[in-house]
């Protein structure tokens, strides 16, 4: 497999996952705002903070309003991670590596791109936003499903999966961070803990899996533990990190890379203190984001660097 192509499919997967998770995040935040009692002063700007985009956002907008936050995350061409920009890169990457993904991938990507461009105003408009975002999530899942269901397990597939799982692990840390950030900034109001963690679960489509696994009511320590350590749930950190290891191992030169990154991967999983959430958890989530970024650099140096 060409190094150049490997890099493109890897990024395709990351951007697809990013689009899906950005849509999920906005959707969950939307419903969170509806659930929290009036008088709770929760700002949309929290989304900008947990994505680490404060500087880019403030360069562009004076007012930290709902409209501006949504615009920045969905349609802003100056935000490299906006949905529209991510779609652009998915399309460019697939366009130049169509020969290694299932034929229909290109069609699905085009369909989604057309849909997003034609319906952007619904993203901004409160009434239709939910439907708009749900469609995006479903379309991304369709693409990922197509790849899972019809692609031969060759190097391209492992690079796609590597990209998906690195991006997904990163996004889970951000979902958890979002929950933590809300709870730390707000005065306690009745039921708030349950509302916030319930929404974090639903951002990862994890409500049912959580209930079956824990048999317990939604509560912070158990939700965090579940999303970080459950080995069988595909949107947990543990699951993603395991998959990352498998993908790396199956690729040429992977054994050597695995030895090199094992320490970091293990570190992602060694958080124990679930009873004591708050700042230590946020610190750990932040560290994980740094490890994942270092992991990306190692992946790039091993497989993507030409010459």
């Amino acid at each position: 497999m060409l190094s150049r192509v490997a890099e493109r499919v890897y990024w395709t997967a990351r951007y697809i996952e990013r689009v899906e998770n950005t849509a999920r995040l906005i959707n969950v935040f939307n419903s969170l705002l509806l659930d929290l009692p009036q008088g709770v002063d929760l700002s949309w700007y929290t989304l900008i903070i947990i994505n680490g985009s404060e500087e880019a956002f403030n360069d562009r907008y004076k007012v930290q309003s709902e409209r501006n936050v949504i615009k920045f995350m969905v349609s802003d061409l100056d935000n490299p991670s906006s949905i529209v920009n991510s779609m652009f890169w998915i399309r460019e990457n697939i366009r130049t590596s169509r020969d290694v993904v299932p034929v229909e991938t290109w069609e699905l990507v085009n369909e989604l791109n057309i849909f997003i461009k034609a319906n952007l105003q619904y993203g901004l408009n409160k009434g239709a936003r939910h439907e708009f975002l749900e469609h995006i999530v479903a379309a991304c899942q369709q693409i990922v499903g197509l790849i899972q269901g019809s692609m031969i397990r060759n190097a391209s597939w492992y690079f796609l999966n590597l990209g998906t799982n690195i991006e997904r692990a990163d996004m889970i840390t951000r979902f958890l961070d979002a929950g933590m950030a809300v709870l730390l900034t707000e005065d306690t109001s009745p039921n708030q803990d349950q509302i916030v963690w319930g929404n974090v679960l639903s951002s990862a489509s994890a409500e049912m899996a959580y209930l079956k696994a824990t048999g317990d009511m939604v509560n912070g320590p158990q939700v965090v533990e579940f999303l970080m350590t459950h080995a069988e749930f595909p949107r947990s950190i543990k699951f993603c990190v395991d998959r990352i290891g498998v993908c790396i191992e199956r690729l040429p030169k992977g054994q050597e890379l695995l030895v090199k990154v094992k320490k970091h991967l293990d570190h992602c999983l060694n958080y124990q203190d679930f009873e004591r959430l708050g700042h230590p958890l946020r610190q750990h989530l932040n560290d994980m984001q740094i490890y994942l970024s270092a992991l990306h650099n190692d992946v790039a140096a091993t497989w993507f660097a030409l010459d």
Partner: peptide, 23 residues
């Protein structure tokens, strides 16, 4: 089912052509 390559993906060594791959 062929690789789509650009010039920078190929290299000539000892009068034989090679492509740069992940292995």
């Amino acid at each position: 089912g062929a690789e789509l390559v650009e010039g920078s993906d190929l290299v000539v060594k000892e009068k034989k052509v090679y492509m740069k791959t992940i292995s």
